[in-house]
Design a protein around this nucleic acid. Structure first.
Lengths: 204, 204
DNA sequence: TAGATTGTTAATCGATTAACAATC
DNA sequence: TAGATTGTTAATCGATTAACAATC
C-alpha cells in the first residue's frame, strides 16, 4: 500500500508544468531541480521530493528531459487530454473567461455557457450560445461534463453550486466570494481577488 | 520578542473576515469558533489558535462578537482603510476587474488604469480614463499607490512587473500565468484559473 | 574518469489537533 | 450554579530541508 500523495504536492505540480512549458518554448531540452527551483522560488530538494512521489523522471548527473517531464506531469494531473468545462454566469468576468484563449493548450475547453438572465439566453459568445441555467443538468449530462466554473454573484452562487452538484459536476472553480458547501468527494477551488489582496496588505 | 506570525495564518484571516461579513448580513451578533469552523470547513481549534496570535477577541462561554472580530481582523489585515490600486492591462479580464463592484467594501479601490494599446489609451471605464503604461510611475507616485493588479498577457507581464517595481509598487496581484521575479520585500499573489483547475483533475 | 545531479533517508522544522483549566 | 466556549499547552502529525550514496 503506497503512501497517499499530499494535496500540497499536487498543488505545486501545475506550477512545475507551467514553467516546463516556458522552458520548452525557450528551446531548453533538459533542466534540473536547481534550475526549475531557481525560476520558481522553490528549493531544489522540494522539487525532487515532490516528483519522487510519482516515479523517477530524471537522470543522475544530467537532470530532467523537459518534454518527458511535461508528459509525465500531464499524465499525473490528467491534463493529457482536454476536459470539457461548463461556465455558469456570463457577466463581465464570465465573458472574459469565455474569451480567454489560455485554457485549451493546458487541458480545458469551455463548451457550454449558462446564465439566468433572459436577455442573455440565446446570445452567442464565439462558437457558444448561452443557455438557461435550467438546462444545466441536461447539457452537462449529455456532454459528459464534470468540471464547472462559477462566475455568478455571491448571492446566486449557493443555488448555482447546488444545480451543478445535482447535475453531476465533480470539480468546481468558484469565482464567487463565498465558501461553498459541497459533499465529500466534490472538489472546489476558490478565486477571490479580494482575499488575495488582503493576504498582502497585512505586510505593507 | 514575539514569535513571528505564520504566513499560512495570515492567509486564512481574509476567509474569516469574509464569513464574518455574511454573519453580520444575516444579523448574527455573536458567533463561536465552532460555528465559524463549520461554515468554513476548518476546525474550531485552528480558528482559535489563529486568532490567539493577535490577541484575545472572544469571551469564554459566549464566543466572539461579530462586529468586534470584524474590526479586529480589518485592523490586522490593514483593510480598515481603503487602498488605492493600479490596474495594468485593460483587456477582457481587466475590464471585468475595472467593473467589479466587490473591491470597495473590502478595502480596495481601483483608481488608475493602464494599457499599452494606443487605441485604448484615453478611453474611459466608469470614472477612470485609461493611461499609457509609460505614465505608470508618474501616476503611482503622485497618488501614493503601492498595490497593483496585472492583467496583461503572459508575454508582457515581466516587463509590466518591472515597471511596477520601478514605480514603487510593493504588492502585486498577478493574473498573468507566469511566475514573477521580484526582490525581497515585494509581495506577489497569483491567480491563474488553469493551475487551479489542474489541482483538481488529478483527483477525478 | 571527474563532475554533476538524481532519488532517498534522516533530521529539522512547523502546523494542526486534542485536551483542559479558566471563566463568562 | 450549570453549561458553554475561550485561550493555551502539549502531543501529534506532516512538510521541508540537508546530506549523501548511487550513478549517469
Amino acid at each position: 500500500m503506497s503512501k497517499p500523495i499530499p494535496d500540497i504536492v499536487i498543488g505545486r505540480l501545475p506550477i512545475y508544468l507551467r514553467e516546463l512549458s516556458f522552458l520548452a518554448d525557450e528551446g531548453v531540452p533538459v533542466t534540473s531541480s536547481h534550475e526549475l527551483g531557481k525560476r520558481l522560488g522553490i528549493s531544489a530538494a522540494q522539487i525532487r521530493k515532490d516528483l519522487s512521489h510519482f516515479g523517477e523522471f530524471g537522470k543522475q548527473g544530467t537532470g530532467y528531459k523537459v518534454s518527458y517531464l511535461q508528459e509525465q506531469l500531464r499524465r499525473i494531473l490528467k491534463v493529457d487530454h482536454e476536459w470539457p468545462v461548463a461556465l455558469v454566469g456570463v457577466g463581465d468576468l464570465g465573458r472574459a473567461l469565455a474569451h480567454y484563449a489560455g485554457f485549451v493548450n493546458r487541458g480545458f475547453r469551455i463548451v457550454a455557457l449558462f446564465d439566468d438572465d433572459p436577455n442573455k439566453i440565446g446570445q452567442r459568445i464565439g462558437d457558444l450560445e448561452i443557455s438557461s441555467t435550467d438546462r444545466l443538468a441536461a447539457v452537462v449530462q449529455e456532454r459528459g461534463i464534470i468540471v464547472a466554473m462559477i462566475a455568478v454573484p455571491a448571492a446566486s452562487a449557493p443555488r448555482v453550486a447546488e444545480a451543478c452538484l445535482a447535475a453531476g459536476i465533480r470539480a468546481i472553480l468558484n469565482y464567487a466570494p463565498i465558501t461553498l458547501k459541497v459533499p465529500e468527494g466534490v472538489l472546489v477551488q476558490y478565486i477571490d481577488p479580494v482575499t488575495h489582496l488582503q493576504r498582502m496588505t497585512h505586510y505593507l
